[in-house]
Write a protein that binds this DNA or RNA. Sequence first.
RNA 1: GGGCACGUGGCGGAAUUGGUAUACGCGCAGCGUUCAGAACGCUGUGAGCCAUGCUCAUGGAGGUUCGACUCCUCUCGUGCCCACCA
Length: 1035
Amino acid sequence: MIHFMKKAKTVDYNPIRIEKKWQKKWASSRIFQSKEDSKKKKYYVLDMFPYPSGEGLHVGHPKGYIATDILSRYMRMKGHSVLHPMGFDAFGLPAENYALKTKTNPAASVKKNVARYKKQLEILGADYDWSREVNTTDPNYYKWTQWIFLQLLKKGLAFESYEPINWCPVDKTGLANEDIENGRCERCGALVEKKPMRQWVLRITDYAERLLNDLEIENIPKFYMSKGTDAWRPGEKVTERMAVYCIVKHWQDDKYLCMKWKKNDWRGYVIGGIKVDESAVEAGIRETIEETGYKNVIFKRILGKADCHFYQELKKENRVAHATVVYLELKNEEQDSITDEEKVIQDIEWVERSKVRDFINREDLKYMWDLYTGDAKEQKLLDWPESIKTLQKNWIGRSEGALIKFKVKSEKSTIGLSPVIPAKAGIQCEKNGASDSTLDSRLRGNDKKIEVFTTRPDTLFGVTYVVLAPEHTLVQKFLEVIENKSEVEAYIAKSKNETEIQRTDETKEKTGVELKGIKVINPANNEEVPVWISDYVLADYGTGAVMAVPAHDERDWAFAKKFGLPIKFVIAPLNLNSDKVVMSTESAFIDFGSLINSEKFNDKASESVMKEITAFVGGQWVTKYKLRDWVFSRQRYWGEPIPVIHCENCSKNNPAGKGIVPVPENDLPVVLPKVKSYEPTGTGESPLAAISKWVNVKCPVCKGPAKRETNTMPQWAGSSWYYLRYMDPNNKKTLVDPKKEKYWSPVDMYVGGAEHATRHLIYARFWHKFLYDIGAVSTIEPFIKLQHVGLIMGEDGRKMSKRFGNVINPDDIVKTFGADSLRLYEMFMGPFDQQIAWSSSSIVGVRRFIEKVWKLREKIVPSKSKTSKSAPELDSIVQDSKKADRIIHKVIGKVTKDIDDLHFNTAISALMITVNELEAIESISREQYEILLKLLSPFAPHVCEELWSAIGNKKSVCVAEWPVADKSLMSDDEVKIMVQVNGKIRGSFMASVDSSDADLEAKAREVKEVKSWLEGKSVVKIIVVPKRLVNIVLA
RNA sequence: GGGCACGUGGCGGAAUUGGUAUACGCGCAGCGUUCAGAACGCUGUGAGCCAUGCUCAUGGAGGUUCGACUCCUCUCGUGCCCACCA
């Protein structure tokens, strides 16, 4: 036993005492306040801010907060300027319903809940910069939520609508499509009804394409064009604002093609427009051939996508294009002469690889080049889990198809209709149609048309009827001309009364009514087919009308069977697989009959065939999205007032304005008034409507009497932009100062629950893109990396809920084990994004680990140079030190990589192994112990801070430098080599790390256990994997 | 019906490009310490067997390979999301 190592008796580990102590010190020293420091790289790590319910936190909630805290502390130690804020999302139904239940004012209960949440968060020891706290219900905050709404209004992206919307009869409010789960209100579970009412809607569908496409953008473009109509050359049809940009390698040397513009001596790359039906790669090859004359151009890879700003010589103007950057190689020097036109403009130069960067004159393109040459690490624009991307893609639901018009023919003779149908003024005949297309003008002359959307125009010949949604606007007009008006009206009334869930129940038999007296004409073969209405057709998808092809569609099939409608089978009016289409108006079908089970016709025609058919019948090829516009008003009290004033007078003067006057920006915020009764009215009016003092205002335009909008915004409004406000929480003049926004944007890491995939994350991306378009933010996407938190389930495996009585309160765990143990345990449970059941008995393991680290301190001996020990003592210390160095330096890399990859469980496991190994050693140095503390400090900050200061450090471990592994200290001299015979482990031996393959092979043959297996057998071959194994293959 | 994940001891889970399956932790068992318990320490812990060792084991069945938890095909099961989307 080495006695000099004995220290004064170490105080026992007491988490409660040390955790309080350090939390106070951290707060008073303001060590965690974020600053824009241009000398440092920034790191913005964000939690999905909590919704402070009355229940308080359970142990599942902190999991994500602990992870971001680890990342925040880790990145700070790595020298980043870190932004790690926290705030509260407190408007909306749950807070209001809770207040109603407890008969308190929502403002009061929110205040109480926030205080409680904050306290619960504080005992975890997170390094939040509380000076940046935001609260969505604070007028200083929602002033800017309202401001964003006004900008949306200005751009025509917010509008009033009277279409039927989803209505929750229990919560007494309209709901967005995203707020519905299986036909029920996501909040209260009530069956959702369809109810027509005035509401505010945001045109999120205008952004559908970008929301979808940008999920796949891989690199970071600096610019983004939202609109563009350029063609490249007069008369040349090219894809809108799409370009290709080519880096072309020499056929022999490591040189690259540089275009020199003769006129201004500007150097650049081959640029070209991408034609319709041409891929970026094809365009790149074509343009390179056209501009340089080189004949044999080979595609190698796509380097990335960016926006290209350049001067186009031929048209003499500046151009911007969304560009794909391709890397090409020339096969040989064969070259045709190029056109004179091209010759005049440019020359070709070959430049060395190292000079390429000089003629790539833009940062983002340089970045791509660096990516190709391996100098830059690939960074995705959206480094999101594939599953979330897929969820969003499915939610946005893009599909391409044809809009096809069916002429309506009313049988005047049959129904005795007068030639002139009484006009119903102003009613629109088509969805989004022109307002002049009133029924009388259209039906006279039988030129009224029903427009359908289909993804299978190739089945057009099999259409045997057309179905409209009961809510389709045309149905109301047809009522005047059909024979069975009352029957149809009854059906419409019935489906109106049915809830969404009843209507969409798949097991339900199809229902519907024919509109008798009306036929439509199939434009493919001029055949007359009947028109039906049925609730299996959705009013708000496509055009609200379908062409029914019972032979090719299950739903149409069920409907046709039920009502005895003909089933006609498309027998290829054309060869489905050929690109050449021969069209004719001859009926290209046979009676369906017994062919139902035939698989002969399951093939879909190619897209080009379908496009040709569409053109043949005068239809349009279009893209449709499942995504619906965002119903943005709630008939409830607890939300941001929509900053709009209704003025009848201004309506008279300006019919286009419909009497909507935006609240002037200077008058913001429109403060939510205090109110005695905030019970929802259920009438479609919010409780605010009852406060006449608040409602009645002067019109800001004409100064006449006017009324405030009384609907409020949905819960998702405030959370759609809060991450921006953290960057500059107290700015009175703008939403966020552009300088600060440029420094901190975008969010580098966003951690939260997967349940927000199709709501918050779509809404926030939508608002962010809009804010980008109006110049309020500088990036096109708000969150670079997104990470899910896997739920922590109750010990019984069910969701943690009061209902099941399986809720574990983190406060209790902190009391018994300490916050550090809770933090370590939640991270050690398993993979971070995985759902795992809580196990209270397992926490003791991480607590034991902390105690081991605590006791390990007793093994510290002073550094060799400072001691005056006897030789044998010194020798043993030196031996220990070598061993300990190897152990500790090996784990640095492992922990660093694991934190980078969010593999917290394996990082902790590696630290446990390290501590176990160090325990087996007699002595360690202070330096080695310090490395251990630094590595552990993001996970268990309190105990590490305590030990760090106990061994004599004055500055906090939070600002210590993250250790870097010294490779010379960590390498083993010897490794264990496994020996396999025919792939099965039979023995092992030790060998020095630099042994040659032949050496290893020879040694392997000599291993005792192996020898007996080799006896009398011939060796076929031997596989040597250096530092790992030798496999001897026998005949 | 469509989409996306995922199946490894008694439990949570480890396992670089295919290269010692079950690391780490819990639990369990034995021993020590203790008046006793808790706590702690040490040892053991996939299964089976004719046991110095051998055979079988990563949901199941095949395949590729010198070698498969890892790759491919099929299949069974579980979870999540969307769903009459034309």
